[in-house]
Computed example of a mutant assay.
Amino acid sequence: MPNNPNDHSSDASTPLIRFAAVQKTYDGETLVVKDLNLAIEPGEFVTLLGPSGSGKTTCLMMLAGFEVPTSGDIFLRDQRLNSVPPHKRNFGMVFQNYALFPHMTVEENIRYPLKTRRLPAAEADRKVSEILDMIQLRDFAKRRPAQLSGGQQQRVALARSLVFEPQLVLMDEPLGALDKQLREQMQLEIKHLHEQLGLTVVFVTHDQSEALTMSDRVAVFNDGVIQQIDTPSNLYEYPANAFVAQFIGENNTLAGRIESVEGERCRASFGEGAATGAVLGPALAVGDATHLSIRPERIKLNGAARDLPNRLSARVHEFIYLGDHLRVRCALPGNDDFVARVPVDAFDSHLQPGDTVELGWRDEDVRALDAP
């Protein structure tokens, strides 16, 4: 198979896919997708992430051609796709329910898109053989889907979507039906296939750890709008607003107010007279309400907190053992469900629920964000 099936144009500067001011409503009143502008480059793995009803699946369905934008345009390179039917877009699709033909063997399922494209038999044989090796299912070629595990069926569905070398592969919650261990294994397999074949992938999920594991960029949706599109590390470390901070990874929130600003830093009050230094988020000024965002792994306990600029006392609710670390759930001013993540080898085993601990953190580990 070629290294880059996306290279269908000499103009490398043109995005492969572009949404231009796209809106979608089903009832003529409520916009499910609002003024969407999004460019996807050849070879990118872009995930559309968000809660149910946020608009991510509707975007994928419009890109696939199963839904039509109410307004705006979708482009493949310079070709406007709005009125192009799904079967003429030449995109691969993988769904959660696999959608395999039960009466066909693995080999016949994978061959099907080549047959519909009337590929010569010898070429079709070669492509099917190559991809059976790639997904490590050559020994299962003559079996039917009912004789396969869930993970094997998902590999067959993936192979069928790739065998005709599409410009773009669309995946709608493809791993949702798998158990945790198999799901994590398949995440890596899909990522490796993406890198190996130079695929362009648009992936929809509501699972933020899946999005962080697999993607070059993640578009976080809420209420029909992309709240932030960025690399996984930037989404986690530099969330644009309180929704993104809360949706990506585990997060502690403290409702507060901006007391002073100095450059990109600020001082914010919260709870009953407590205060902290923080990184100032977009469009905030002195006097504004804010949600302070702090990741659990950035919080230090007792001796480890001693030299940190922000310290306060908290009462321990419980310890939750998770193998390499413990989640320490505490009550402190402004948040009765505040979590610190402590490595097992740094944990004081004498601590008991009900004890008072000192928590500490650095200014740069707190982000002052909008108060929704």
Rank of each mutant, 00 (worst) to 15 (best):
D179K: 11
E123P: 01
E123T: 15
D307N: 14
S215C: 06
P120F: 07
R306L: 09
P15A: 07
S260Q: 11
H194C: 03
I258P: 03
L119S: 05
G151T: 03
S54L: 01
E41I: 02
H325L: 12
E107Y: 12
D363Y: 06
K115Q: 15
A283G: 09
A146F: 05
R160L: 13
V84A: 05
K88Y: 09
L132P: 02
Y98N: 08
I299H: 04
I40G: 00
T14H: 06
T290D: 00
S161T: 15
V22Y: 01
L193F: 05
D125N: 14
D35Y: 01
T105F: 15
N37H: 03
D230P: 06
E41M: 05
H350I: 05
P2T: 14
V339C: 14
Q152S: 13
E189G: 00
T213M: 04
G50S: 02
A283P: 00
A274Q: 12
R298G: 01
M93D: 05
D125S: 14
M186Y: 05
I258K: 04
N97E: 12
P309S: 07
R77S: 08
I229N: 01
W361P: 01
V261Q: 07
P166R: 14
H291A: 05
R144N: 11
E237Q: 12
V279N: 03
K127Y: 04
T356S: 12
L197T: 06
P166Q: 14
P166H: 08
N222E: 06
G334Q: 12
N251A: 13
N3M: 08
T253R: 06
E108V: 07
E108Q: 15
E173A: 09
R315G: 05
G50K: 01
P85H: 12
P174H: 05
M186G: 01
V106I: 10
Q181I: 13
V201P: 01
A304W: 00
T276A: 13
L326I: 15
Q23F: 00
K24I: 10
D27N: 11
L36M: 04
R77L: 15
S269Y: 08
E259I: 15
N234K: 11
L170E: 06
M214Y: 05
S9Q: 08
G176C: 10
D370G: 12
V33G: 00
P372Q: 13
P333L: 04
H192P: 04
E264H: 10
F95G: 04
T205Q: 01
A289V: 11
A219Y: 02
Q136S: 13
F95P: 03
A245R: 00
P51Y: 11
P15D: 06
